[in-house]
Structure formats: structure tokens, C-alpha cells
Nucleic acid binder design. Structure first.
Lengths: 207, 207
DNA sequence: TAAATTTGTATAACATGTTATAATTGTCAA
DNA sequence: TTGACAATTATAACATGTTATACAAATTTA
């Protein structure tokens, strides 16, 4: 990595740190580009050079937090694919809950922006992840083999994204959010579950 | 109604008409307050006097369209409460589908705003509506009497609002939106359905 | 080392939502 | 009819996201 690239990364980091600090300490209303540049010790132009827009600064915070990169959180210790899906939901919840208001604020900042592309990126990632789980569950004979894997996976992913969206809007906290996701996932899976996974789902349902 | 009040209502209508026309003909990006005032033939101040903010102008469009006042759409011809719930979803879909892009745009304009109160108003209304249906379904013995009516009703309402939110974000159209709502509702109701409603729900599920 | 290139800075500017202010107009009540 | 009041207008202003421009500094490359 060249000197230039190093300096860039440092500036990126300074800006992200400043943004996070402002949001935490003074609230997102105070996060203006001028103030951000000021606190980060760079010029107003620099965040635009390095991120593109205010929304993309916020998106970078989310990415760093790994909220969108849930792969890393997935538990390996479950034998059922369905079980792993729920574990990853639990891990996500536990992770976000430590700093609920912050994540919620940042998530909303990204999702409520008019930059459609960024939103769509988030959607696609999580839906592909869901579809992967469903495909695995079918291969595993945890759910009926006659259902359309991609379609059902998409539905599961959309439930996740939808309810996350409502969490972002501040209507409820991460605990209640996870409960609604869990409940709707259980219900959906139960409509296609085989004997192998039914018991697990019933347990999961009773939370 | 006094002259003054009449003039006010006329101005409100002129502004709403102008807003709808701009959105339809030129897209919501062109809907600036200055241009809106211009097209409506009023001063820049007037929309603020009569509505309060840009978001509230959009909200008024939604209200006029009855998207939030779904009560009027509810079919009376079903004997099951659960059946009526799904009918009202169908009616809503049919209504919105006639002008999908327009409603979607306006809905998003309202929901993505930072005016939390307005969002919450929309949420509360639909959730109360859902809770009413669920209470009725319990009274009707269509679903198990040992479940918590308010809690389950809220869950149903949240599924609706969440998925509507994703529709608003432009991820899918009203047809797919309704399909996801229907599917998730069926799955949820099936977990608590009695013999009386199970068959209906299975039919509904197969779309 | 010196020119070329990239990156950041300073400053101004623009569009837009929103608010302030003062003047004007229309309505209503006496 | 006329004075009081309310609503509307015209105009300017402010904050904020974003872009433009000209210049300076750092870094790479020849």
C-alpha cells in the first residue's frame, strides 16, 4: 500500500471515528458535513472524496460494525441449518443490543436516504444469505423438497429485511425486533417443515 | 364554514392537486416547495401555513387516497373474521395497484422523512386495526382462545407495516408486496388457528 | 532531483427545506 | 362603513447537502 493509500485510509478512519463520536455524544441531528469535517480535522471536500456522500459515511459505519456482514456471526455448533439460522439471528441481536440506539440511528440514516443503490445492496446481501440457508435446509431434508428454494428463501429474507426496517425506524428496540423476526420465521418454516425440524421450530417459537 | 375556512380548504386542495400532478408528471425529485407553490399558484409560505411541512403535504395525499383508512375497504361479505382480513388486503392491493408507482413514491416520501410522529401515526392505526380483527377472530373461535389477543394482533400488524415499508422503498411492487403479507399472515395464523379457520387459511396460502 | 500526478484545502456557490419580517389583502364584526 | 383581525404574499435569510474552482501540498515517477 502506497503512502497515499495509507494517508487516505487514515483520513477515512478519522472521519468514521468523528461521525460515530458525534452521533453518540450529540445525536445524529448534529452530524452535518461541515461539523463532521471540522471534528475529523479535514476539509469539507474530503468526506466527499473518500466516501461520496453523507449516506455512504453512515454505510461505512454499518459495514465496520459488521451488521451487514452477518456471515461472521453464524454459529457452527448447530446440526440443523434451521438452527444455525436462528443462532445467527440471536448473535446479531446480542451484538446490536449492546449499542442499540447507535445502530438503529445509523441504520435508519442509511435506509431512509434517497440513495436507492445502497439500500438495494443491503437487501440483496441478506436475501442471498437467507436463500443459502434454505437451500441447505432442503438438502438436509429439514424442509419439504417440493418447495421452491429461491422463492421461499427470498420470503424469509424479506421478512428479515422488512422487520429490520421497522426497527431502524425506531418503532421498537432490537429485542422486540428479534422476537418478531423469530416468530415470523418460525411460522413460515413450520408451513414447510419436515418431522426432522418441526420440534426445533416449536421450541424456538416458544422463544 | 366561514369564507376564510372555505378559502383555506380551496388552497389546501390546490396544493394537493399540484403536488400530485408534479409527482405524476415529473417525478418526486421535482417536487420542491418553491415549484409546488408556483404550480399551485400560492406563495412559498402557504403550504407551510396549511400543512406544516413537505412531509405533511405528502401525508395528506396518502390520507385522501385512503391508503391508511383501510376501514372503508373492508369487505362485509365474509363470514370469518380472518377471511375479512384477507379480503381487505386484497381490496387494498387492488386499489393501490391501479396507481402503484404514485402511491409507492408518496408512501416512501412520508415514511422516510425524519418526522417520527407522522410515521408513528400510520403505524398505530394499522396495528389497532389488526388487533381488532384478531380480537374478533378469537371471539369467533377462529383462533385459539389462549393466545394474547393484543400481542398477536400487534405481530400481525407489524408484519403488515414492515412489508409495506419495504414496498415503499421500491424493492417490489404492490402485487409482490401483497403476496408476502398474505404468506406471512397465513403462516402466523396457522400457528394459532382452530379447525374452523384452518381450511380457509390453507386455501389462502396457495394464493 | 525535478516534473507530473494525486490528494487535500479554502472558499464560494447552488438548491432546497424552512423560518422570519414586513406589507398587503380579504373577511368579519361592530 | 370602518377598524380589527387573520391569512397571504413578497422577499430575504439561514442551515445543510453537495459541487465547482483555484491553489497548495504530498507523493510518485522519470
Amino acid at each position: 500500500m502506497s503512502q497515499r493509500e495509507i494517508a487516505k485510509q487514515e483520513n477515512r478512519q478519522k472521519i468514521k471515528d468523528a461521525a460515530a463520536n458525534i452521533i453518540r455524544r450529540e445525536g445524529i441531528e448534529k452530524l452535518t458535513m461541515r461539523y463532521l469535517a471540522d471534528i475529523a480535522g479535514v476539509s469539507l471536500r474530503t468526506p466527499y472524496n473518500l466516501f461520496g456522500s453523507k449516506t455512504e459515511v453512515l454505510f461505512a459505519l454499518l459495514e465496520d460494525a459488521g451488521v451487514l456482514l452477518t456471515q461472521g456471526l453464524i454459529s457452527q455448533s448447530e446440526d440443523l441449518a434451521v438452527g444455525r439460522l436462528f443462532s445467527s439471528l440471536n448473535a446479531m441481536e446480542a451484538h446490536v443490543r449492546k449499542d442499540d440506539e447507535f445502530y438503529q440511528t445509523v441504520y435508519w440514516g442509511v435506509m431512509a436516504s434517497d440513495q436507492v443503490e445502497i439500500r438495494r445492496t443491503g437487501y440483496e446481501r441478506l436475501i442471498e444469505l437467507s436463500q443459502g440457508f434454505v437451500a441447505e435446509a432442503i438438502a438436509n431434508k429439514e424442509i419439504n423438497s417440493d418447495i421452491n428454494s429461491d422463492e421461499f428463501g427470498k420470503h424469509i429474507g424479506i421478512l428479515l429485511m422488512s422487520i429490520l426496517g421497522m426497527w431502524g425506524s425506531g418503532y421498537f428496540g432490537s429485542k422486540e425486533c428479534a422476537a418478531h423476526i423469530r416468530r415470523s420465521w418460525c411460522a413460515s418454516f413450520l408451513t414447510v417443515a419436515t418431522r426432522k425440524s418441526k420440534q426445533h421450530l416449536m421450541n424456538e417459537m416458544s422463544h
